[in-house]
């Protein structure tokens, strides 16, 4: 089967500093792929490069469309939703406005209303706070809001940057359970960048290990999870 996203020889740099040295990976339609690695390995940069937010070269093929020359706004319009590092909340706007912004590129008003109600079913806490300034939400609530905002795009592919960051373990479980639900019931493909490897491997179908800007290892998530030597040397658990 042809993958939804096909990345070959991706390089990226900040100023003079090269961070990615040609990485290759695929994301299958309707599957969850995780990108694991230590701090500074280039995980976040990979996501940013996919969205055209850093200088990069190589080929990025999204369902037959080349993304490398496109601007962030246009990439989003193809159905790629990015939940960025730090969650990207519009702190001065209300929770509901944040959700509406997620659907900014869509046209049909009634469907958008319906989607907002659906997000509220996923995250009842957001509904309780719908009129509140989003900056006043707790970290976990802002993470939910970020996921909800991304879903409002009705994306084909979601890029999630450390969805577990700074959250209490219980909330992390909750967020990951919802992500699994989203994949299973809505068929959204995902690329998840995580430091919490065990959690990400439980959810993911495929996994890639990135080390100083290069892919060190890849394979089905279950295999990597069960391979003790990999766990010991790369994942540290």
């Amino acid at each position: 089967m042809k993958p939804l996203l096909r990345v070959r020889g991706l390089e990226a740099q900040y100023g003079l500093l090269k961070v990615l040295h040609g990485i290759d990976f695929d994301i299958g339609e309707g599957s969850v792929t995780t990108l694991l690695g230590a701090n500074g390995a280039g995980k976040t940069t990979t996501l940013r490069a996919l969205c055209g937010m850093v200088r990069h070269s190589g080929t990025i093929d999204f369902d037959g469309v080349d993304l490398t020359r496109r601007r962030t706004e246009d990439i989003v319009r193809l159905g790629i939703a990015h939940v960025p590092e730090g969650r990207g909340t519009f702190t001065s706007l209300t929770v509901e406005e944040n959700l509406q912004l997620g659907a900014m590129t869509r046209r049909q008003g009634s469907e958008i209303e319906e989607d907002i109600r659906r997000i509220y079913r996923f995250f009842p806490r957001l509904e309780e706070r719908s009129g509140q300034q989003a900056g006043t939400l707790s970290g976990g609530e802002q993470q939910m809001l970020a996921v909800g905002r991304a879903l409002m795009l009705r994306p084909r592919l979601m890029l999630l940057d450390e969805p577990s960051f700074g959250l209490a373990p219980l909330i992390v479980r909750e967020v990951f359970a919802i992500l699994a639900d989203i994949r299973d019931n809505m068929g959204v493909s995902m690329l998840i960048v995580e430091q919490n490897a065990s959690l990400a491997l439980e959810l993911a179908d495929e996994a890639y290990l990135i080390e100083t800007g290069e892919i060190a290892l890849s394979g089905p998530a279950a295999e990597i999870r069960d391979n003790e030597s990999v766990r010991n040397s790369y994942l540290g658990y």
Partner: peptide, 18 residues
């Protein structure tokens, strides 16, 4: 709404396609 979002947080605004 898009204008307010773009002013408040340009990077996030781009990420929702504004």
């Amino acid at each position: 709404l898009a204008m307010r979002a773009a002013a408040a947080n340009p990077e996030s605004a781009r990420l929702v396609g504004i």
